[in-house]
Amino acid sequence: MQVRFRTIGDATCTGAVLSSAKNIDEIIQEVSATRITERGGRSDDKRSEAAMEDRKKEGYF
């Protein structure tokens, strides 16, 4: 698949997006057109609505 990563974390929780953006200008174009958030492809945030808050309270980044 032609993909790129919008956010990079651990390979087990970071999703890729289908993309043909080959340079920064094309990434900027893609980001300005997208209707999905950057972390929309991260399964770590999808575990529950307060997943990030709970992790942060414990001391996560």
């Binding site: 209707r35 999905i36 958030t37 609505e49």
Partner: peptide
């Protein structure tokens, strides 16, 4: 507002 944000708050 992004689609996935909108979907999440619609659901909530």
């Amino acid at each position: 507002i992004f689609e996935d944000q909108m979907e999440a708050i619609e659901k909530a």
